[in-house]
Structures are given as C-alpha cells and as structure tokens.
Design a binder for these strands. Structure first.
Lengths: 160, 160
DNA sequence: TATGTCAAGTCCCATATGGGACTATTATTT
DNA sequence: AAATAATAGTCCCATATGGGACTTGACATA
C-alpha cells in the first residue's frame, strides 16, 4: 500500500467546495471571507476603522438616518457590536446621534460631514476590491448573481 | 420640514444591498453570515464543536488526510486558528495526527471513526440548513450559483 | 560541514466578538 | 392607575480571533 502521504493530493484553494448543493453555501462563505478579511484589515491599518464601524457607515450611506436596531436588522449583526461601532464613530465625530423626542430609548444615527469624507475613501477601496472579484464574471453572471442573492437574502435569521 | 425621524423608512433585512455591483459582494457576505452563525452556535451548543473544529472536519471529509497548511489554504483561515482546531479535535479523539517520516515538521491529519460518526451528525444539520437556504432557488438559480461561485473562488487571497 | 533561508506549526498577547444580564423607557393588559 | 410585558440600548464577561514572534526542521549554497 502507498505511503499515507500519497493520499494527499495537493489541494487548491476552494477546490473542495465544487461538489454539491452543500458546497454552494460553503463556497459563499468562503468567498465572503476571502473578500472581507483583507478589506477590514486594510481599513484598520490605514484608517483605524473597525469592521463594525465600517458596517455602520456603510448602512448609513444608504439611508439618511437610522436607529441602532435597524442597523442590526439590516446587517444581521448583534446589537452590542453595533452599539460599540456607533459609540466609536460618535467619539470620532464621524456620526452623530439625536435622541428621539417621542421615545427616549431611541436615537437616530446620522453620518456627519467628516464621516462622509472618510466613508468616501473607504468605499473607494471597498469598490475597488469588489470590482476585482466581480471582474471574474461576465455580464450574465453578474445579473444572475444579483438575482440569486436577492432571493437568498430573504431567508432571514433572527439574531439578537 | 419633516421630523428627522420620518427620514427613516422601516428598512427590511438585506434591503440595503439590492443596488449595484458593490451590493453583490455585500450581499454575499450577508448571506454567508446569516447562514453560518446560527449553525456554528448550534454546533457549539449541541456538540461543543467550535467553528474551527467543524471547518477542519469538513475539509477532511473531502480528503482522506491533509496537512494543516493544506487546510489553511483550502479554507483561507489563518494557521494558528487551524492549529487550535486540530489540537482540540485530537484531544477529543476525533482526528489523529501521524507525523511525516520524511519531514518532521509536518503531520498528516486524519478523521478517526469517532470523528466520522460525529461529523455525520454535524453534516446532517449543516445540509438541512443549506437546503433551507437553497430552497429559495429554482434549479436554474442553483446551477447559476454553482457556476458563479466556482468562478469567484478563483480570486484567491493569500492569508498567513 | 557551516550558514543562511525557508517552511510547518505552536505560542503569546491584544483585540473582537457574542451571549446574557441589566437599565431605562414605552406599550399593553387588568 | 398599577402591574406586566416588551423594546432600545449598554455593560460585563468569557471566549474566539488574528498578527506576529518563536521553535524546530529541511533545504540550498558555499
């Protein structure tokens, strides 16, 4: 019988995953991690912005103002993490919080001008990287991907 | 002018993301997190298996035996994390390590019988959840998704 | 054989993370 | 109105994570 070592074919990255239905979701996670880790490392290094801070800014860039719990729902991230992200951003003057006069528990979060300026830089880096990934796809692929991801996003978790 | 609060449309989960090319990758990450967090929480609660342990078992289920650095490359995860996962699994008797006689730095990792038995349960839960997600897609979608994810997986990072 | 370089894993440490308890406020029920 | 539940957000704490230093061993070159 062969040496035990010979059983190991030199596996390439992501290779494992190209198999069945289960593989599709594994691969989604794999691609997501591959995309997101280097970007967040870059944000941290270049701008001292953490993942949670970026997430808050990103979501806010699509709505003028939001409450923390809305950001949680939109991102699927736990509220304590979002809370911390918001606190950091506020400390840095990148967002501002205005308490809801009708409900003292709530506060609306808005990006400040300073926050917009920084976010533009972050988004440029983000977009550049995203384009790098998507450049592997043709136009049909991109359309399919959009359609599929919209469908999949409907399957929502309820994260505390 | 309207109350500041009225600016906030009640945003639904994942809604932000359905916009442009940048949104596609955001959405991939969103779906990935939505899929993966509850499953790992379940694994931790029901089987006391951590994410890293599952990842190692998962990858090993596709290859008879592998070395740690191969698992890193296939998963894109840092080697210290994988190292810890392997250590835990070995302690529990779910995998075994046989040192490479030709290179004392290396060790081949193999799933034990006990490991296989546990992994079957984990995989059943994983598959069930994956099927839940994928049930939102029709057959064309699934085929498209597979094709696209294989393409995207080629855009590989080099993670330490 | 000495020497420098690289590779596989492990270890240490500072930070990020998520669960759950807690506070403060509002909504609902009686 | 009082009592109870529910909600937004924060805090605490134990664990997970990733960067980087370190150890050990292999390999290339002299």
């Amino acid at each position: 019988m062969d040496d035990i070592l010979s059983k190991s074919t030199t596996a390439n990255t992501g290779e494992v995953l190209e198999e069945n239905a289960i593989g599709a979701l594994w691969q989604i996670c794999f691609v997501a991690n591959s995309f997101v880790f280097p970007i967040y490392a870059q944000f941290d290094k270049e701008y001292e912005i953490s993942r949670m801070e970026f997430v808050v800014l990103f979501v806010l860039s699509h709505r003028d103002c939001l409450m923390a719990w809305e950001i949680c729902r939109m991102t699927g991230l736990p509220k304590n993490n979002i809370s911390r992200g918001i606190q950091k951003l506020e400390t840095k003057g990148l967002i501002s919080r205005s308490p809801d006069p009708k409900d003292a528990r709530r506060a609306m979060v808005t990006t400040t001008e300073k926050g917009h300026i920084l976010f533009d830089k972050l988004l440029a880096a983000y977009t550049k990287r995203a384009d790098g990934f998507l450049s592997l796809l043709d136009e049909n692929d991109k359309a399919d991907l959009d359609r599929i991801m919209v469908k999949l996003s409907k399957f929502m978790p309820t994260i505390a």
